[in-house]
Computed example of a mutant assay.
Amino acid sequence: MKEAFEIARIIQKSLKGKLSESEEKLLSDWRKVSEENEHAFQRMISEDFYTVGMEKLETYDYRVAYGRFLQKKYQRRRKRRFLISMARVAAVALPFVMAVVLYVGLNREEEQTLRPSLASNILPGTSKAVLTLANGQMIPLGKETTDSTIITDGTQISASGSGITYADGGESEAVVYNKLDIPRGGEFCLTLSDGTRVWLNSETSIQYPVVFGTKERRVFIQGEAYFEVAKDAKKPFTVQFMSSSVTVLGTSFNIRAYPEEKQSQTTLAEGSVRIYSPGSSMLLKPGEQAEVKALSGEMVKKEVEVKTFTSWKDGRFVFEQEPLENIMRTLERWYDIRVIFRDEGAKRISLSGNLKRYGDFSQVMNMLQMTGDVRFELHGNDVYITTE
């Protein structure tokens, strides 16, 4: 039991990015012992673990439960099979132990202060977009619109609440472009005429041909998008963004290119891509990422955990020792909020977590505040952040 509390304490510290070398090794070794331990760790850093655990702890007398646990342990201490069963129980019980540690370590007064401020119930984004045709006509799309069929420039477009699909129109000498804009608090899916699928994140725009030309497939994006490119050995697929471009034949990758971030990130999930920047190029393999500075064009390649950068399309936000400023910038777009840092030092606090993308904002704030280093106040859609 002592070890369980120690591991729980270390995991809590890891969420703040404050582990010593010995603690990092202890946590790493513990995670490698078994699949159950790794599963428990992932469960502990997920946002729903904390919100559900807090609710349970408010009505559960853990001291009585622990007394029963000790009684059973005493009664069965001479039975060899007890050791085996306890190993299994520990893997299941540890998340609850973690919740106890976090709960008793919190300042009750601050917890009560947080809840009323979160009553505004800020909801997550939904499927919505605006399609602009070649003639300038703008068509709202999304969850609140009805399914429809649009005919433009001889091509059929099928629109649903979550995406649009362009019919295969073969090839065209004259390339005609459409544009899709996803606002803050939105997301949308696009299937191009060649079968390529594109997931578009909040505050993103993409310009693309209604039907691709005879020599290449080229699209332009600003924001964040995940591509699953249909294979065509005769026509490479090129994504142009900021001062860079990515060329592929058929593969899956994520591009994040928001102008205000002053750099772009291309993360490869499958296949291979070549990224071009003024004066240089770089080939990426699965699990690698290229970061390009917008002004200088300088490129840096590194190995990354792909899901950290692509999980948004699967309904999760995954952060690994990410500065709070970057985390809040992502949440600003998705929840359509405004974040104000009252303490500049709070921007540099590094946090880890695995959050439900479709949970309401109060759940996310509860998890982030549980690190003990930051405090959140909500006034309407404005979020004020200070250090503890």
Score class of each variant (00 low, 15 high):
A4V: 09
R9D: 14
I10T: 05
I10K: 03
I11A: 02
K13C: 03
K18I: 11
L19K: 08
S20H: 02
E21M: 06
E23L: 03
L26K: 15
D29R: 13
W30Y: 08
S34M: 04
N37W: 03
E38R: 12
E38W: 07
H39R: 14
A40C: 05
F41K: 01
Q42W: 09
M44H: 06
Y50A: 13
K56H: 09
L57H: 09
L57M: 14
E58I: 12
Y60C: 13
D61K: 06
R63N: 11
A65S: 12
R68M: 07
F69E: 12
K72V: 08
R81E: 15
R88L: 11
V89R: 10
L106T: 12
L106A: 15
P116C: 03
L118N: 09
I122N: 01
G125A: 04
S127Q: 10
A129H: 11
T132S: 11
A134L: 01
A134H: 03
G136L: 04
Q137I: 11
I139R: 09
L141V: 03
K143I: 11
S158E: 11
A159D: 10
D168V: 01
S172V: 00
V175R: 00
V176H: 00
Y177H: 12
D181A: 15
P183Q: 09
R184T: 10
E187N: 10
L200G: 12
L200F: 03
N201E: 05
N201R: 04
S202T: 07
Q207E: 15
P209E: 00
F212K: 00
G213D: 00
E216S: 07
E216N: 11
R217F: 00
F220Q: 13
F220E: 15
I221E: 14
I221F: 05
Q222E: 15
E224P: 01
Y226I: 07
A230N: 08
D232P: 00
A233T: 13
P236H: 09
V239I: 10
S243P: 01
S244I: 01
S245T: 03
S245Y: 02
I255S: 04
A257W: 08
E260I: 05
E261I: 00
K262H: 14
K262Y: 08
A269W: 05
S272G: 13
R274C: 08
R274S: 10
S277A: 15
S281C: 06
L283C: 04
G287Y: 02
E288D: 07
Q289C: 13
V292P: 12
M299V: 15
V300N: 13
V306C: 01
F309V: 07
R316S: 14
F317Q: 02
V318W: 07
P323S: 05
M328Q: 07
R329G: 04
E332Y: 02
Y335I: 05
I337H: 00
K347L: 02
S352D: 05
G353A: 11
K356N: 14
K356C: 11
Q363L: 12
T371I: 14
V374H: 06
N381E: 13
N381G: 02
T387I: 10
